[in-house]
Design a binder for these strands. Structure first.
Lengths: 344, 344
DNA sequence: CTGTTAGCGCATTCAA
DNA sequence: TTGAATGCGCTAACAG
């Protein structure tokens, strides 16, 4: 049996309150007493009981990372682990713990509980001080529940609700930079493979594509816009549908889709970048390792995760419910071989 | 303010105990009373307070997934997300929650706390009912702490401690099958790129390699054994070191290393499988997508995660501390193009 | 500066 | 079958 506050107090010859003050770094404890208490804490290996503390303080120091409908994407795309590392690092740095809520597409066999019920349970049982939501679709019910239950939350990705705090990357500008680069290289028939359009990230990248072309006075050809799903297979399939329309360049809204497109082009005997230029988005590690190396838009994925957590924590620790916080991180064009520019 | 047991009891016109019995599915409540209480629970949206419940029951229904020294590997290798999906699914299925403890290699800036201190804190604060440990090295201090604190735990991967429960895949047999396959194809100068040898999985795969050769009466040539680190870059570097010794076939202990090796071979102008045969391990999604498609050893990664959780839960729910549980899942040779067999 | 007191919300004896 | 009483381990007023 691990020691309790009570026991530590007895051993140190003080009251529980004093020990409590010591472990909570509160003032108003005589230095020598403080030292004596620390000594006992060290010797006994005392550690406060999390549940007891939570019950008293009404805070858990646990934040949840909610990833709704864990589509296959998440597990093929390197985005996810990198993002999570950012999240985990920030939690560690601030002494918070991380609860992971992944909801698989398929209903778990043993559980009669729906994803919706699981949300409710986790959110309302007050396991969590706050929540980071990632990769949700626009209409995900989690937002409804979060708002209704008044759970503080931060979204990784834009979300246009008046009470939604979020951290996002500048998808519009990133995509525009990519397409502008292709335009500069002389391309005019530029196609795009979008992400699933029920996600804002996908919508925003498409918007960037549109803006770049429009600014150049090039009319949008809807045949050159095909919806993908952020996966490699999706990119490959989308590219096949694009081929009949003979684009000279393609902007894929994710690196994995670009890699899929690369495959489709190869199968069709087309060379990249000689016959067709290709640009991706994300700059995942794989992007620089494929042949030809992918020109792409780098987004600070890990930082996105850290920032989301840090924003959430700042919300938790100074509750200024009035203001809504939004952060947009910049993206950066990384030029490699696949767009046809000769790199040194 | 969410409702408490007390309030529900009042509304239903019964005592707290009765409501408690109802939510905990206990017998000895008159059906009509039970129904009345449920009705109030539904209407109020009552949900038990996790911390209060934990304090009383001394159980949290939270299990931890501890991944020590989150080396880069974890975030490039698709192994990790797939494993985690298995873990998360099993948790959802059994109504447990998942706490993720990732410890980054680099010390988080804000935190003066060492990884060791973080372990202590998480384990001893009784946030967790039990722990699944993955990807630990042999000498990781977490094992010491777990045993000392008496926290129930299951390791994903073999661990030869008398009190250690684990779930593993049959790395030895898997590796042996891979090498035997190469032997059958007529190869005799078979090299291997191992994983980091401070992990049992790496050791075991090397052992399988040795067994296959020895059984065939082929002496082990230490020049043909090079240590990698499970990453693509590591595989590439290892392959380069191997080239002077002119193997005719290579068994890489992970697919990512095999892909790295592929790259090194290409750079050297060698064709796979014509000039040199290549076999990997894992069967990650990427394995079937590279060119040539990788012959590899499939391990049931997702199942490994689920089984680890299920074993842990069974340990938690029927505490038979005497017995130690060990599960070894089978592996399977998947023959594709990179080994030089013509596939239909 | 320190101790006493009173909950936090629930499960669980024990009586009735 | 039900209710009243007790305590899980801690924090936070409030006195002193």
């Amino acid at each position: 049996m691990p020691p309790t506050l009570e026991e530590v107090a007895k051993l140190a010859g003080v009251s529980r309150s004093t020990v409590s003050r010591v472990i909570n770094q509160q003032p108003n404890v005589r230095p020598e007493v403080r030292e004596r208490v620390w000594e006992v804490i060290r010797q006994t290996g005392y550690q406060p009981h999390a549940a007891a503390r939570s019950l008293a303080t009404r805070r858990t120091r646990v934040i949840g990372l909610v990833i709704p409908q864990a589509v296959t994407t998440l597990f093929t795309d390197p985005y996810f682990p990198i993002f999570m590392r950012g999240v985990a690092d920030a939690c560690n740095a601030h002494n918070y713990h991380l609860m992971l809520s992944l909801f698989s597409h398929r209903r778990a066999q043993g559980a009669p509980t729906s994803q919706d019920a699981l949300y409710q349970q986790i959110l309302r049982s007050r396991y969590l001080d706050g929540v980071v939501v990632s990769s949700a679709t626009l209409d995900d019910p989690v937002f409804h529940h979060l708002l209704e239950d008044g759970v503080p939350f931060v979204i990784a990705g834009r979300y246009p609700h008046e009470r939604a705090n979020y951290v996002d990357v500048d998808n519009v500008v990133g995509a525009r930079m990519a397409v502008e680069h292709l335009l500069r290289l002389g391309h005019e028939r530029i196609a795009t493979i979008t992400g699933p359009l029920n996600m804002f990230a996908a919508q925003d990248r498409l918007e960037g594509y549109r803006q770049a072309l429009t600014a150049r006075g090039i009319p949008i050809d809807e045949h050159l816009i095909v919806e993908g799903d952020f996966t490699e297979q999706g990119g490959q399939a989308a590219m096949k549908r694009l081929l009949p329309y003979r684009p000279t360049a393609v902007f894929a809204a994710s690196d994995m889709m670009a890699i899929g497109a690369l495959k489709a082009l190869r199968e069709d005997g087309l060379r990249v970048p000689e016959d067709i230029a290709l640009v991706g988005f994300d700059d995942v590690p794989l992007a620089s390792m494929v042949d030809p190396a992918l020109t792409t838009v780098r987004q600070p994925i890990e930082q996105l995760g850290s920032m989301a957590v840090e924003l959430l924590i700042s919300l938790l620790e100074n509750p200024q419910r009035e203001t809504v916080h939004r952060v947009v991180l910049p993206t950066e064009l990384v030029i490699r071989a696949s767009c046809g520019v000769r790199v040194r």
